[in-house]
Design a protein around this nucleic acid. Structure first.
Lengths: 106, 106
DNA sequence: TAAATATATCAATATATCTTGATGTATTAT
DNA sequence: ATAATACATCAAGATATATTGATATATTTA
């Protein structure tokens, strides 16, 4: 029950839906790229990423200073159906913009 | 997007999850029966039923003084998958208790 | 070692949601 | 008509969640 509510709660926010879809569409991305793509302050992005991770949708991979977020794999059928539903939403998703001064994707 | 958030928001509450599953397990029930089965005040039940209805999970049928709530049919695949997931949750669902003075189920 | 960068977390405030008790509206019974 | 019942809605307070700015931690660069 608590786990279910955590999952549902994690997608009950427009900002998180957009971030989740952004990652689903772009694959693995680092926090600074999300930050500059969405033009939101870092603490806000970081907090939402944590909630999506705790909701079971994302995984993190730290490499050096950078944290790379991607869709967790394997993803159970329920979360897959949610992700699919989100992919249909009519909502503005920014294009990926590189944000780190020393390229995190080099 | 707004519609999706309304759907997700409607199941982002323990009380509503329990009510939704109660109706899913018992079929068509009237408000007074939910009220006495859950031992919650009427305004609280009424509010949650409205949210679940607006979330697309329930339908209402008014007959006389009574309002009978049941799972909306047909239910799209996404809401069906949610309902299925809810049916697996480890949570206490009360047994149906008749609540109306003049039986609503006669 | 010191400075800069990337990320996480905390504390304060703002905003949204839930619960309760009171009130409103229909419908039925007397 | 009046009273009682079932349900919906509103207003106030309580609780939860989101946003911001500040601070903390870790890694890399100079």
């Amino acid at each position: 029950m608590d786990n279910f509510l955590k999952t549902v709660g994690s997608i009950n926010d427009e900002t998180r839906l957009r971030i989740l879809r952004f990652i689903n569409e772009n694959g693995e991305v680092c926090v600074c790229d999300i930050e500059s793509s969405f033009d939101m302050i870092q603490s806000r992005i970081s907090r939402h990423l944590k909630i999506l991770k705790d909701g079971g949708f994302l995984r993190v991979d730290r490499r050096g200073v950078w944290a790379y977020y991607s869709i967790r794999f394997p993803l159970d059928a329920f979360r897959q159906s949610i992700l699919k539903e989100i992919s249909f939403l009519d909502v503005d998703i920014p294009t990926l913009k590189k944000g780190c001064s020393k390229g995190c994707s080099i």
